[in-house]
Computed example of a mutant assay.
Amino acid sequence: MVVSPGSCDCGVTVLLTGLPSAGKTTIAFLVAERLRDAGHRVEVLDGDAMRKTLSADLGFDREGRHENLRRIGLMAEVLARNGVIVLVPVVAPYAESRDAVRRRHTESGTAFLEVHVATPVEVCAERDVKGLYAKQRAGELTGLTGVDDPYEVPKEPDLVIPTVRQSADEAASLLMDLLKEQRFVA
């Protein structure tokens, strides 16, 4: 992580990682709205949207997931390097892939924060926003992260958000507090 001295109008990439239906995208869009209302330049690079465009050619095997995050990480790094606060809600199940994105940011002197949206798989399966858990149970889907494909929990994230104990607004406030604490926003 690169911490900027004092309050600044500098960019940062905030990678929100967690299981499918953990609440990553909801939190990202709530924070983005608050940041825009405060006059900040902000982008949300949602993993699902990126899969339909930037990474439409990729599969969901380990290599495809790694390449997907590499592409999104590159885009986020360029935006953050140019003063944008970039919120990246993606599953990003593998530590190696997340570490590669962090390294790229570090090498370019660009700020990077990792946030683990820590929602138990049982809660994610109840939410099942996209119907993935139902498809997996019905045998229509394999390789679901946290069920039959691994999710490597971040070892030292900059923030852990346990969404089962908080509302989406409270979770967004935790992330806003981190951005203030790290002096990316006032």
Rank of each mutant, 00 (worst) to 15 (best):
R36C: 12
V91K: 01
S7K: 14
Q166E: 12
A111F: 05
V86G: 00
R102K: 10
R34F: 04
V117W: 07
L69Q: 09
R127Y: 00
A186Y: 12
V121T: 04
L132V: 13
N68H: 13
C8V: 15
Y133R: 07
L178C: 02
T119M: 09
G64T: 01
T145P: 03
E122Q: 12
T110Q: 06
E114T: 11
L54A: 11
S167V: 05
E170Q: 15
C10M: 10
R127H: 02
E152F: 06
M50E: 15
R98C: 06
M50T: 14
A186Q: 13
P89K: 01
S21D: 06
E170K: 10
G109C: 08
R70M: 12
R165S: 15
V90C: 14
G18F: 02
L16Q: 01
L16S: 06
L74Y: 15
A125Q: 10
S7M: 13
V88A: 01
H116P: 08
C10Q: 11
A32H: 10
A125T: 08
V115W: 03
A118F: 04
V3S: 13
V147Y: 02
E33Y: 11
R70V: 07
A95D: 10
D99V: 12
H116S: 00
N68W: 08
A186D: 14
P89G: 08
A100F: 01
V78Q: 11
T142P: 04
G146K: 09
A118G: 02
R71K: 09
E63P: 08
P89D: 06
V31Y: 07
G39D: 02
V129K: 05
L69E: 04
R41P: 04
D177N: 12
V147S: 08
A38D: 05
D148F: 08
A38F: 06
A56I: 11
P93N: 04
D149G: 08
R104V: 11
L87R: 05
G47D: 01
P89W: 00
D169T: 11
L132M: 14
K24W: 06
P150S: 10
V101L: 09
V44I: 01
